[in-house]
């Protein structure tokens, strides 16, 4: 371990004093959970609890992060804390990888095991008309074993997903340019490229929104379109949500840059968001190949 020594006024260990943020955030999430659970069971009041909880939660996060940022800018965080943040971000991204792994695993299992099984000789006892074709719809084939899924068309890689791939890849580049500019001390350029990155992220989301609209209105491809629709929307939707979160992170980093936060040497907040963005990017490449091409 790199043993950073305490420098000047920066404490060796940073231990914050008592804080009300954690418990407040937990209370917010309680209302989120309660509301969501009730709302999806047709209790309309759940909606209000959900919204209230979310607002509450984000208020708390704002205060919490605000405090952390002040501590950081106030020079409370030593190199050791910086290293802690690095480790934690790395492990957090690992947990996200595993979250995606569950959904990719589902896709793999459905295609490689369940589908052939459902269409096998043995299973013809149960689903005599079903042909195991992925995606599970095509002209002349039953859309799902029970025939309950309305016919739909699948989402190909061209053109929207490919445009999105280009957008994300470009955003990775602009982000890196911003990073280099920050290291070089060129704040103006950093900020400009950060805005560009955020904009690319937003564009990605808009294109994806349009893609969903297209799927629902023209392809008749829905969440309920059998296992194809389930995996398609779950994977791309979960990813889209991550793009949204990553975009927010970048946005806040950009705003902080404008306020003069971060230095050439120390800017882990920036780097953490960048790691996350690259992670989201890599997941997209996986999606692009596995969901859209294969």
């Amino acid at each position: 371990m790199s043993a950073a020594t305490s420098t000047g006024k920066t404490p060796y260990y940073f231990v914050p004093g008592p804080s009300r943020h954690p418990v407040m955030a937990a209370i917010g999430l309680f209302f989120v959970m309660l509301g969501a659970g009730q709302w999806i069971n047709d209790h309309d009041w759940g909606k209000y609890s959900l919204i209230f909880g979310l607002l509450w939660f984000f208020m708390v996060l704002k205060q919490w992060f605000g405090e952390a940022i002040r501590e950081s800018e106030g020079g409370q965080y030593s190199n050791r804390i910086d290293a802690s943040f690095r480790w934690s971000m790395g492990w957090f991204i690992f947990s996200e990888v595993m979250f995606f792994a569950a959904f990719f695993g589902a896709l793999y299992w459905a295609r490689v095991h369940s589908l052939p099984n459902l269409g096998s000789m043995e299973n013809s006892l149960l689903w005599p008309d079903f042909k195991a074709i992925w995606p599970s719809t095509a002209a002349g084939f039953t859309a799902s074993p029970a025939g309950t899924v309305e016919p739909f068309a699948t989402m190909g890689p061209w053109p929207l997903p490919t445009i999105n791939t280009a957008l994300l890849l470009t955003s990775g580049v602009t982000l890196t340019v911003a990073h280099h500019a920050l290291i070089a001390g060129n704040r103006g350029k950093t900020i400009a490229f950060m805005w560009l990155t955020v904009l690319l992220g937003v564009t990605f989301l808009c294109v994806q929104g349009y893609e969903y609209h297209h799927a629902y209105s023209e392809l008749n491809l829905k969440l309920s379109s059998g296992i194809y629709g389930s995996t398609f929307f779950m994977l791309t939707g979960f990813h889209g949500f991550h793009v949204f979160v990553g975009m927010l992170m970048l946005l806040f980093i950009t705003l902080r840059l404008q306020k003069g936060h971060f230095t050439k040497e120390r800017h882990f907040g920036f780097e953490g968001a960048a790691w996350y963005w690259h992670f989201v990017d890599v997941v997209w490449l996986g999606l692009y190949m596995i969901v859209y091409w294969m």
Binding site: A110, S114, A146, V149, M234
Partner: peptide, 10 residues
Amino acid sequence: TSFFSPAGGG
């Protein structure tokens, strides 16, 4: 969705 429902291919 039909992740776990064979009727929809899950």
